Amino acid sequence: MEALKLGYSPCPNDTFIFYALAHGLVPSPRPVEPVLEDVETLNRWALEGRLPLTKLSYAAYGRVRDRYVALRSGGALGRGVGPLVVARRPLRSLEGVRVAIPGQNTTAYLLLSLYATGFHPLEVRYDQILPLVAAGEVEAGLIIHESRFTYPQYGLEKVVDLGAWWEEATGLPLPLGAILARRDLGEGLIRALDEAVRRSLEYAQAHPQKTLPYLKAHAQELSEEVIWAHVRTYVNAFSLEVGEEGERAVRRLFAEAEARGLLPPSAEPLFL
């Protein structure tokens, strides 16, 4: 049976979730072929419909709703998980400030665009942002993933926590990323793949130490302490099942972005 290409990032939350599925340790309707890439690369590929199954920023999902549908499992939503803006010194405003961003299709950039105007974005890989800010090549950085835990090591300080800002404004968890399936796979296969992703996560939660070599292989610069902090932060109950509250959070994010002209509207259902 032909394998389905499955795109996800090398970040510990994704490698944790997909460890069992990638290694054939849980039932799946089709074997999967992992494709590990930076999330912004996956976001750009989704605009082309390149991968049948892929991790995606919710901001990018908002642009490909005609082609993809979100699985109910495997995503990243929650509280206390938001992107941060960091700088070498306090900033009263981002007006006119050069901000290194991890990609224009990331949820982080969408949130920053909802929060502030008048800044000057510079798009770079997420793991290059902290060194750029520390070197003074830009005034501020919009950080995601493990950078949330490591920015103090660069002598930087938090300017704003965009997740906390979102939670205070809406009372809802913050949607960051989802696992999407191309709609042309058909509802039956998509539902079976959703179950496979859920089982993969359940396996990892039951056997976390078995996943560690895989996590470390793709996050070689991170200590075990940071790896597990990353997993605890981004893998939670919403990762097993997005739930009604998670759905409301996604709809609210898309509605806010559509009202500002940051995302196109769509009538397609968001989840299975």
Rank of each mutant, 00 (worst) to 15 (best):
A3F: 03
S9C: 12
P10H: 09
C11F: 15
P12C: 08
N13H: 14
N13C: 10
D14H: 15
F16T: 09
I17Y: 07
A20R: 13
G24W: 10
P27G: 09
P34D: 00
L36N: 00
D38W: 03
V39S: 13
V39R: 11
V39E: 11
T41R: 14
T41V: 12
A46F: 01
L47T: 08
R50F: 10
R50W: 04
L51P: 06
L56G: 02
S57R: 02
Y58D: 05
A60W: 05
Y61D: 01
R67W: 04
Y68W: 11
A70Q: 14
A70P: 02
G75H: 09
G75M: 06
A76N: 11
R79K: 11
V81L: 14
P83I: 12
P83Y: 08
V85D: 05
V86A: 06
R88T: 04
R89Q: 14
R92L: 13
S93D: 15
L94E: 00
V97T: 14
V97M: 10
A100Y: 08
I101L: 00
N105R: 13
T106M: 01
T106A: 13
T107M: 01
Y109F: 15
L114P: 10
L114E: 08
L114M: 04
Y115R: 10
G118R: 04
E123C: 07
V124W: 07
R125T: 11
R125S: 15
Y126R: 05
I129C: 07
L130D: 04
P131N: 02
L132V: 01
L132S: 01
A134L: 08
A135M: 02
A135G: 02
E137Y: 12
G141H: 06
G141N: 08
I143P: 05
E146W: 15
F149C: 00
Y154R: 00
G155D: 14
K158G: 03
K158S: 13
V160D: 07
L162E: 06
W165T: 05
E168Y: 09
A169W: 06
G171R: 13
G171H: 13
L172C: 06
P173Y: 09
P173D: 06
R182Q: 14
L185T: 01
G188K: 12
G188S: 12
A192E: 15
E195P: 00
V197L: 00
R199V: 01
S200T: 03
E202I: 05
Y203T: 09
A204E: 10
H207K: 13
P208Y: 12
Q209E: 15
P213T: 00
Y214W: 15
H218T: 01
A219L: 06
A219I: 04
Q220Y: 10
Q220M: 12
Q220W: 08
L222S: 04
E225M: 00
W228E: 10
V231L: 11
T233G: 03
Y234F: 15
A237R: 14
F238Q: 02
L240A: 11
R248T: 06
V250K: 11
F254P: 03
L262M: 07
L262C: 11
S266C: 13
A267S: 14
F271M: 03
